[in-house]
């Protein structure tokens, strides 16, 4: 099996030759090209070349088409601050008061230069590895996007407003964000991505109680999924165990889980019908030795088995800049060592 076949087998609960390994390597491409992060992020050619060098170096099962998901806010007029050793952060919000929502329109993702570069990287990667590696695109989920447009505090004030602001502004806000993310995801699929991962940190059980998730986020997620023309990955970016069953059968093909969740328990909650990807602790990768990484991967595989429905990866959003190369090698090597299906070999 090649990487893509392996991933598809795992996602469709057929037994792969080995468990796929999906380390989320985004910034590391800049190291391979010896470029400062901001410059690396700014060109689609850089992103594609960086990803190609990374798969050559680590031989994992996927490539990533985007520099960072924060770029999704740019077409709305938000500003980013770049760092030499980490992903950028939003430093200029574009919604300053709730009434600004009334004037919102759905921006065209393909009209923004940075997002054009992402689409260009997707096309370049599709030219090189389509059908061989899993090509992964990503989008901030519509329910979570407003936290980057107005700030989490203001967004929480809207969600839990006492003076009718929620009823007045939330429907319009979600309509704009859902239309935008749907369009942006489908553009990436058209450019050659195999799967779009939706990162939905504000919807997770770390942020919302279960009844709040059902009331506020779930309807938005269902609407989103219904408009996507390809494979869907859903990343909780927080605790999922108590809400994961609510998303069962709603259209996601893979759930990406954090290190705080018990993978086996989540599998039980979903009835084993949606594949799970996770959940190596990305922050601990900074200090673990390669032996410890191997130990943790083995533990995870012992827990989840090799029978399909499971992909090894790190928890989101990505592997930090300062994680040693040896640990990334150890992660991939350990999956090869312990995740190979003996009957299929």
């Amino acid at each position: 099996m090649n990487s893509l076949e392996r991933c598809v087998a795992a996602v469709t609960f057929k037994e792969p030759d080995r468990i796929p390994v999906i380390p989320v390597l985004l910034m590391q491409g800049a190291k391979e090209l010896n470029l400062p992060l901001e410059r690396y992020f700014s060109r689609g050619d850089n992103l594609a070349e960086g990803q190609m060098r990374l798969v050559e170096k680590y031989d994992h099962d996927c490539v990533f088409t985007f520099p960072h998901v924060v770029e999704d806010v740019l077409p709305f007029g938000a500003g980013l601050r770049y760092f030499p050793d980490g992903p950028p952060s939003v430093d200029r919000m574009c919604l300053h008061k709730f009434s600004d929502i009334e004037a919102m329109t759905v921006p065209d993702p393909s009209a923004h230069e940075q997002l054009k570069q992402t689409l260009h990287a997707t096309e370049k990667l599709a030219e090189k590895v389509k059908g061989e590696k899993l090509i992964v695109g990503a989008v901030i989920a519509p329910f979570s996007l407003p936290s980057m447009l107005m700030g989490t505090e203001k967004y929480m004030k809207l969600l839990f407003s006492r003076d009718g602001e929620y009823e007045r502004y939330f429907p319009k806000l979600m309509q704009v964000c859902t239309d935008y993310t749907t369009r942006w995801a489908n553009l990436q699929l058209e450019a050659g991505a195999d799967i779009i991962v939706f990162a939905d940190g504000i919807a997770s059980n770390t942020i919302l109680r279960t009844h709040e998730f059902e009331r506020l986020a779930l309807p938005v997620i269902e609407k989103l999924f219904s408009g996507i023309n390809g494979l869907i990955g859903y990343e909780f970016v927080g605790e999922a165990e108590e809400i994961i069953h609510l998303l069962q059968g709603k259209g996601a093909h893979v759930f990406l889980l954090g290190s705080g969740d018990d993978m086996a328990a989540c599998r039980a909650k979903t009835g084993g019908s949606t594949a799970l990807l996770g959940n190596i602790n990305n922050i601990k990768l900074l200090r673990w030795t390669p032996e410890r990484v191997e130990f943790e991967v083995k533990k995870l595989i012992d827990q989840m088995g090799t029978g399909g429905g499971f992909l090894v990866g790190n928890q989101g959003p990505e592997i930090p800049w300062n994680v040693p190369d040896e640990n990334i090698h150890a992660l991939v090597r350990a999956v090869r060592k312990y995740g190979t299906v003996r009957t299929a070999a």
Partner: peptide, 11 residues
């Protein structure tokens, strides 16, 4: 605790 609970109590 969820952040929403902390937020609501906090406000």
């Amino acid at each position: 605790l969820t952040l929403s609970e902390i937020f609501i109590n906090g406000t």
